[in-house]
């Protein structure tokens, strides 16, 4: 026997219509199913949100733990744009260049920095430096932040506020760095007067590399009219440094006691 389509249809339709569905039970089951589904979705969403919150919170806490201060965000931005912002701050009041955060990030050991354009508030004394040879800056310097200070500390003062600061870039920065690096590595035989003029100045030169990275900070002793200064980065020391003649007007504006252009150091006495 081979079933025809008619037989097949008849067989399939046999008992057709028997049985009825309970719609109320069906709707109740559908509502329960929907409720379970929503609960499951909400639970999953809650877990995802909790995990995300934990991740973000942990990341923020880790970021705060690694940053040097509360202005770490500004410090990062300033570090990235340090070279570009250096010029804008030239001659300004200290609001254009750097910040406490960037200064702290780039500060070498042994020099505490303030929020005043990244200038240090304490300068190394010459006795702290050894006479090791080598470069004063750790990498090629593209710009230099020049901070000027009074050579004489106020009584009982432990820190200094820079009297002024400026930024040198390009040829001026190169001239300054060359003069620093080419200063004598040995103490000169000539003697300088121990007396420091009241308007004498000390400087701190903060070298910045191409990307605004800190290349080193060089501090000077009092720059007197008649004698060169001793300069050091804390490890390497140079002697009898005098500012390049082309930069002396700039430095003189920052620190009136700086020798004017054309001044020739005159040894006062000899050993």
């Amino acid at each position: 026997m081979s079933p025809s389509e008619f037989d097949l249809r008849a067989a399939l339709h046999d008992d057709d219509g028997n049985g009825a569905l309970d719609v109320d039970q069906l709707i109740f089951a559908a509502r329960a199913h929907r409720s379970q589904r929503r609960t499951r979705i909400l639970s999953t969403a809650a877990v995802v949100v909790a995990v995300a919150a934990l991740g973000v919170g942990g990341g923020l806490l880790a970021g705060q733990g690694n940053s040097p201060g509360p202005t770490s965000g500004a410090a990062q931005a300033n570090r990235d744009n340090a070279a570009a912002s250096n010029g804008k701050a030239a001659g300004g009041s200290g609001t254009g260049f750097g910040s406490a955060g960037s200064a702290s990030r780039q500060a070498p050991a042994g020099a505490s920095l303030s929020g005043n354009a990244g200038c240090p508030t304490t300068l190394r004394s010459p006795a702290q430096a050894s006479a090791a040879s080598g470069p004063l800056f750790s990498e090629p310097v593209q710009s230099v932040v020049v901070c000027a200070y009074n050579a004489i500390l106020a009584p009982r003062a432990t820190s200094q506020t820079p009297r002024g600061h400026t930024v040198l870039r390009g040829a001026q920065a190169t001239q300054l760095v060359n003069s620093l690096e080419n200063a004598p590595t040995r103490r000169p035989q000539t003697m300088c007067p121990d007396m420091i003029r009241a308007d004498a100045s000390r400087f701190a030169f903060i070298g910045l590399g191409a990307n605004g990275t800190h290349a080193g900070t060089v501090t000077t002793t009092a720059v007197n009219a008649g004698c060169g200064a001793q300069i050091t980065n804390g490890t390497v020391t140079r002697y009898a440094w005098t500012p390049p003649s082309s930069l002396q007007p700039t430095l003189a504006r920052l620190a009136p006691g700086t020798p004017a252009a054309g001044t020739v150091p005159i040894p006062s006495r000899t050993k």
């Binding site: 008992d15 057709d16 219509g17 028997n18 049985g19 009825a20 569905l21 719609v23 069906l26």
Partner: peptide
């Protein structure tokens, strides 16, 4: 469901 339930059930 009342109209088509029985057919779907079969």
């Amino acid at each position: 469901v009342e109209a088509n339930g029985a057919t779907l059930l079969h």
